[in-house]
Design a protein around this nucleic acid. Sequence first.
DNA 1: TTTACTGCAAAGCATTTGCAGGGCG
DNA 2: CGCCCTGCAAATGCTTTGCAGTAAA
Lengths: 132, 132
Amino acid sequence: MKAQRTRSQERILKLLRRLNLALSAQELYVELRSREQAMGLATVYRALEALKLEGVVQARVVAGGESLYSLVQEDKHHLTCLQCGTSIPVDDCPVHELEAQLRASKRFEIYYHTLEFFGVCAPCQLQQQPGA
Amino acid sequence: MKAQRTRSQERILKLLRRLNLALSAQELYVELRSREQAMGLATVYRALEALKLEGVVQARVVAGGESLYSLVQEDKHHLTCLQCGTSIPVDDCPVHELEAQLRASKRFEIYYHTLEFFGVCAPCQLQQQPGA
DNA sequence: TTTACTGCAAAGCATTTGCAGGGCG
DNA sequence: CGCCCTGCAAATGCTTTGCAGTAAA
């Protein structure tokens, strides 16, 4: 196996652990630049790609096309407004059983799953009724 | 309410119903161009945006940053390989109960959810062990 | 006539890639 | 000494936006 990580990968992993939240590549880039030694943006992307393939980091695409990266252990899901993009965290998750089933039935090594609900939040619902 | 659809929106909706599968904006653009009268790519995007906000169409972002659009009624989920990008459909879905709960507890109008599993498919697992 | 939709082409942006320099083994 | 990692900058590709023409009410 090739679980051998580069220094950049380690640094990003450490930062993700320290902050314990989902960040975009650009944010990681800035964060690394300020907290520790700088790192090229391309390297950030390359490291994230490797960590993702390794199964320790996961990505979630948000409105705007940006990806947010976080540790796989985090099992937080989201409720997202299609209109304003606001995301509310959802703690509950009924997926684990199914995940176990899939793991058994398909020949597929599952690292993580993403579950996201989409709709319109209360404030945006009000805005949709102009005259009403 | 403003459930008044433009002609373009209707045409895209009709096409999605007819094909009954998830397509990218570009694919819809090409498809429309060949099957019926042509339509500008920008219009395709604008129409999809409107249909999404209306809750009849949903989007799923795939590797490469492209979005695939489909009717909301489809409740197909996916098992995606992080390495080669292959997606296997997953029919089962244990999320509806939670969705009902969320609908009740949060003031949030939920249109649909996306559930996606990520990992490495069998063929790609083999490729990872070069010498072994 | 007035408003809203459409097309085209020009941005915008996150991400990827080529290439040369540099560090580590 | 050789290979992999890095950085920079250019390139890619999807999506968005400005603006002017056009169809609909």
